[in-house]
């Protein structure tokens, strides 16, 4: 289907506005809420004189909107400041750590897509049967058990003294330890994340497919004598998978939250762990940059999903409103 340039332009404007709002929110939370950057850097026992000198250096005595504009413009020009805690440029820090988290995210997305969508379809086709019951039942566990519990459980089983096939945590890059080493550090975190996200996506696929299998056009397809395989694979799945694209992008949100916790469990030095460290050490520049980055990625993933969706779905010919 044709996606008009006007639609794309409009979406881009919305996204830019959205990103500006996000930056205001992030800046607002980090600036307005209690907790003073200068105090954090200098420690609790700094003299007031020292604090106010540093505040001036950091521009903290300026009016809030000037601070925001300064902050945003330096952010946009790539100078993301220096980490209080690591004493390194935030930009470098985030790029290195972000890449590691990206591996986790990409591999997990690939696994959950290839597992949960078929499972969802099967559960919907055998709606209300034992198979459906089994799949849905297990999915409840996936949704209800927090990732730090699953992760720890996996550690106990697969990295423990009894049956230790995988390292208990940490990270080795491919250049340092080869692909086997690299993989062995990634398997458990990815498995944990998969268990977490698989249930979400599978349940959503199932719900979508159950609705579609009840629809009038599926009845039409059956009543014209098509066999059930054609009905499901040609008529239902085609329509059922379209929203899944959007859902995948949305499940990226919970995946990112999951990554934070999972990296903590497996001592995996990615972006998530960096964020948690920065929270405990109140490393504001790192926090601001990494949360903004995550929100940007999430927003653009949703945009990409929307565009793919409009290409897949003949019903939508854009030009109209974004809703």
């Amino acid at each position: 289907m044709h996606v008009s340039n006007r639609y794309l332009a409009k979406r881009l404007v919305y996204i830019i506005l959205n990103l500006i709002l996000i930056s205001i929110i992030v800046f607002g939370i980090t600036t307005v809420l209690p907790g003073n950057a200068a105090e954090t850097i200098l420690g609790r026992y700094a003299t007031p004189e020292k604090v106010s000198t540093l505040e001036r250096e950091l521009g903290l005595d300026q009016p809030i909107y000037i601070q925001y504009i300064d902050w945003l413009s330096s952010f946009l020009t790539g100078s993301w400041g220096t980490s209080f805690q690591h004493n390194r440029p935030v930009f470098d820090l985030i790029v290195t750590r972000g890449a590691r988290s990206l591996y986790l995210a990409v591999i997990t997305l690939a696994t959950i897509t290839s597992i949960s969508i078929p499972l969802g379809i099967i559960a919907a086709v055998y709606h209300d049967s034992k198979i459906d019951f089994g799949i849905t039942g297990v999915s409840y566990l996936g949704i209800s058990v927090p990732e730090f519990v699953t992760g720890t459980g996996l550690l106990v089983v697969f990295a423990g003294p009894v049956f230790g096939v995988f390292p208990a945590g940490g990270y080795t890059s491919i250049s340092d330890g080869g692909i086997r080493q690299w993989l062995s550090h990634i398997v458990l975190p990815v498995t944990t994340l998969t268990i977490l996200s698989i249930a979400h996506l599978m349940r959503l696929t199932r719900t979508e497919m159950v609705d579609i299998l009840k629809s009038d056009y599926i009845r039409t397809a059956r009543l014209k004598g098509l066999d059930e395989k054609t009905v499901v694979l040609k008529h239902a799945v085609r329509n059922g998978l379209m929203p899944t694209v959007t859902l995948l992008a949305m499940s990226l949100g919970s995946l990112m939250g999951g990554i934070v916790v999972v990296e903590e469990v497996f001592a995996y030095p990615g972006l998530g762990r960096l964020i948690v460290d920065s929270v405990t050490h109140r490393d504001v520049p790192v926090l601001q940059a990494s949360i903004l980055l995550v929100a940007f990625v999430y927003t653009f993933a949703n945009l990409a999903a929307d565009i793919v969706y409009t290409y897949l779905n003949p019903r939508i010919s854009y030009g109209g409103s974004a809703r």
Binding site: I25, V276, I291
Partner: peptide, 13 residues
């Protein structure tokens, strides 16, 4: 558009 756990983290932080 900020993942829920991250926003919560940021606020608590």
């Amino acid at each position: 558009s900020i993942p829920s756990l991250l926003l919560a983290l940021l606020i608590v932080a």
